[in-house]
């Protein structure tokens, strides 16, 4: 009997420890302008003549895979909505392990796009879903730039679409030397600087332009 009860206790302890274990790797996403973490509705100088303000920055990352020396250790098929308006959403937790590479998707994969109604971060009320042309908006950036003449140009980039020939999902790989508390930066200065906002201030539907900008974005992530 004594042995049995101690078994139960140790079982509970293992369970407890197990749960503790599962949340010890933290990955934080940090959207940045030059070397600053972005705050919404704050004006940043991009260079001597151009100012940038961001009012919405919201995107999905999904399907995280962890590698060690090229070998797949673990894979998690879920999607997370990161939203600058809710800074805690930028912190993700994973089971800790000894890895040196991470791969993830920017956006939501096609099977999720055709899966019907979904909950949690994928709930259409999160404002990241097109209803008349069903599918998730993978990345939403809204704001304005002001040029040296004082003219303010608002922009809205809603990037999404999963159907061929215009799938917007991007696979991103990063390497790392440490296996805990990872910070992945998203350099939005690089993104905005590469776009001629004057001639392309709105992308709101799937298509070639959405694919082009999504590819551009995928090069803006780094550790």
């Amino acid at each position: 009997m004594i042995r049995k009860s101690s078994l139960i206790v140790s079982f509970l302890m293992v369970l407890f420890l197990g749960f503790g274990q599962t949340t010890s790797l933290k990955i934080t996403f940090q959207p940045r302008i030059s070397n600053e973490t972005i705050e919404l509705n704050k004006v940043y100088a991009l260079n001597d003549s151009v100012q940038l303000e961001i009012t919405t920055c919201r995107f999905y990352v999904s399907n995280f895979s962890f590698f060690s020396k090229g070998k797949l250790l673990s894979q998690q098929k879920s999607a997370f909505l990161l939203d600058l308006e809710h800074p805690t959403s930028l912190d993700l937790s994973f089971p800790s392990m000894d890895f040196d590479g991470i791969q993830f998707n920017l956006g939501v994969d096609s099977s999720t796009n055709v899966a019907g109604i979904l909950d949690g971060d994928l709930d259409p009320i999160k404002g990241m879903y097109w209803t008349w042309n069903s599918g998730y908006i993978n990345f939403k950036l809204e704001g304005s730039i002001t040029n040296n003449t004082g003219k303010k140009i608002p922009f809205e980039y809603h990037l999404g679409g999963y159907l061929s020939p215009y799938p917007t999902i991007q696979t991103i790989s990063v390497e790392t030397e440490q296996a805990e508390n990872i910070v992945i930066q998203l350099d939005l200065q690089h993104f905005i600087s590469a776009i001629d906002v004057n001639s392309c201030s709105n992308v709101m539907i799937p298509g070639a332009k959405a694919v082009e900008l999504s590819k551009l974005l995928s090069n803006c992530f780094k550790i």
């Binding site: 055709v114 109604i117 259409p124 879903y129 209803t131 042309n133 069903s134």
Partner: peptide
């Protein structure tokens, strides 16, 4: 344009 009956109602 709508790819699933469950999301049509929105």
């Amino acid at each position: 344009g709508v790819n699933h009956l469950e999301v049509q109602g929105i």
